Structures are given as structure tokens and as C-alpha cells.
Amino acid sequence: MLMKRYIIKRLLLLIPVLFGVSIIVFVVVRLAPGDPARILAGEHASPEYVEAMRTKWQLDKPLYIQYLVWLRNLLRGDLGRSIATRSPVLEEILQRFPATLELSIAAMLFAIVVGIAAGVTAAVKQYSFWDYFSMTGALFGVSMPVFWLGLMLMFIFGLELDWLPVSGRIDVGVNLKVITGLYLLDSLLTLNKTAFLSALSHLILPSIALGTIPMALIARMTRSAMLEVIRQDFIRTERAKGLPEKMVIYKHALKNALIPIVTVIGMEFGLLLGGAILTETVFSWPGLGRYTVDAVYARDYPAIQGAVLFIAFVFVVVNLATDVLYAYLNPRIRYQ
């Protein structure tokens, strides 16, 4: 009952958060230089046509009126129409989001597996070669810019070695029946081996580039949390009972160290889902991040506002799911 009340409270907090985000985005977008009516009409349009576009899109109204009109439509589930494509913004976002979701899941799986393994190894073998090697690698992982790492991966594994593709989600000419928008899942559901291998090969490089920084953060947090846990009395007791070392480390120590690790995973996954802008741009990945960049270049107000608001919503929901997971991992936690 207490958990249910907490979840409802957090869901209600979504309303002021998203309301605040909507105001900030709406104002900041309109502070950018340039005339959106001129962009809508075209560079060589007549002044009369520019004014017609200004009236049609209600750009001649005061700023607060424009916001209230947009907010009214938003409450109806209408994010407006893209200025560049004339298509509904919500429809375009939902078409692009599966690509970002698939990339984010792959990147986070890479980060979790490699990061936790490196962190546990570094903690168990503290001050050894593996400890210094893992933490040095984590330091480089945090320090490397995503765009630079992406370009290096493309150059080495795509151009020099020609092992993996460097752009897109699937090879041209490969037929795939899209069901969920997640190409790996769709290829498994349709038993399409060719499409699965093609989609997987396209996913490897961008997921490594995107997952490197979360991997480094998870490795450092895992090491810190594990060092704190393995020094506690109950770990000494488990070892005194004669339990195998692997069971002591992975079943008892790691389980009790998961709370801070889950915090990092939840926050990083929310950021990845919010739109891996640099990674998607470098690898020409047709996701939400690249959609947002294209909207900014085109001064597409409805698309920018809709994408940022959707990103904020996803981030808050992921954080809520992370908080709920705390209680599952540690029943002693109680929310007030």
C-alpha cells in the first residue's frame, strides 16, 4: 500500500515537471534568431505569402497566446505538425523512438555486462594489475568524447578492417517485416536470419560508442560499492562457513552492492533513451536524437518542442522505475 501511494505521488509529480519543461523549451526555441514565418514560406517567398504563413501558424499572436494554444492541443494529445514535413509530430516521434530504444538497450547491456564485470574484478583483486587496468580503462572511457570514439570505431572497424557497417540500421536490399520497430526483435519474430545478422552488425559500433561512458561509470561505482560490502562482517561469516568464493562474491556481496549501481544504471539509461544525439548523428542512426538535431537545423518549432517534451517524459518515467526497483532489491527501503 505504501509503495502504491509512492508511485501515485511520483506520477502526479510528472505534471509540474513536464509543465515547467514545456515553458522553458517553448521560450528558448523562440529566442533563437531568425523569422520562423520566413523559414516556413521559403527564402524567395513574397512578403504577402510570408504574412499568410505567419497568420496560419499563429506566429502573429503574443507569445503567451501561442503557448496556451500549443498547451491546449498538447492536452488533447496533439503535439502539432512538423513545419518541415507537415506530418504530425507525435507520429514522427513514435516512428523514430524504437530505433533509439533499440540502440539504448544494446548500449546499456554492453555497459552493464562489461562495467559490472570490471568493477567486481577490480574490487576483489584490489591493488592488483586488473584493478589498475580496469580503473584506468574506466578513466579513459569517461574522458573520451562520444563523437571522437564513434569516428575512431568507424575508421578502424568500418573502413580499415571492413568488419562492420558504419551507418544505418540494416543493409540495403534486406527485407524485414516491421512489427515493433525493434529490428532485432522483429527479425526473431519473423525468423529472418539474414535481417537479424544485418541489424546486429549495424548495432555493434554505435552501441559500443554510446555505452562506453555508462560502462565506465558503472565500473567505478561497482568497485566502490563492492569494496564497502566485502569488508562487512556478514561476508566474513559467509566465507567462514566454507561457501565457494564465487557464491560469496556474486550471490551475497554483489546483491547487497546493487543499490548504488542501479542508481547509476537508471540515470544513464534515462539519458540514453532521451536521445543519443551525437552517436545517432555520427552513425546516421534514424532515431530520436537525430530527429531532434534535424528539427533544430530546420527551426522546426513543433518538432523541437515535441521531441524535448517526450525526452523529459521518458527520463522521469525511467527514474520512477529505478526508484521502484530499489524496494525490490532492498525490502528494508520504505518510502514516505
Rank of each mutant, 00 (worst) to 15 (best):
I23N: 05
L139H: 08
L189W: 03
P214I: 10
D162Q: 15
E91F: 09
V69R: 15
A253Y: 12
L200G: 01
I235L: 11
I65H: 10
G275N: 11
A195N: 09
Y326N: 12
N319I: 10
T279E: 05
R334W: 04
S128T: 05
V174C: 03
V146T: 15
L63R: 08
A321R: 04
Y326F: 12
M221F: 07
A253T: 02
S82G: 08
L191C: 04
Y49V: 06
L191M: 07
I204G: 06
L278R: 14
A106S: 09
P165Q: 02
R290H: 09
M1F: 11
I265L: 06
P244S: 13
A32G: 05
L188Q: 04
G289S: 06
G119F: 03
T194C: 02
V324G: 03
F26I: 09
E48F: 10
Y250I: 10
D300W: 09
G289K: 11
L40A: 12
M267F: 09
I230T: 06
A45I: 02
F147N: 00
V29D: 14
R220E: 06
I112R: 11
I304C: 08
E228Y: 14
G34P: 03
Q66L: 13
I93R: 13
A107H: 07
L13S: 13
E160C: 07
R236I: 01
A209V: 12
A32Y: 05
L74S: 12
M247P: 00
S104P: 14
A219S: 10
F133W: 11
I8Y: 09
A219G: 03
Y326M: 09
V264K: 09
T136C: 13
V308W: 12
L159W: 06
R5I: 00
T263Y: 03
I230W: 00
L203W: 08
A84Y: 11
M1I: 14
Y335R: 15
T281Y: 13
G119M: 02
S128A: 06
A195I: 03
T190F: 01
I112S: 01
L227Y: 08
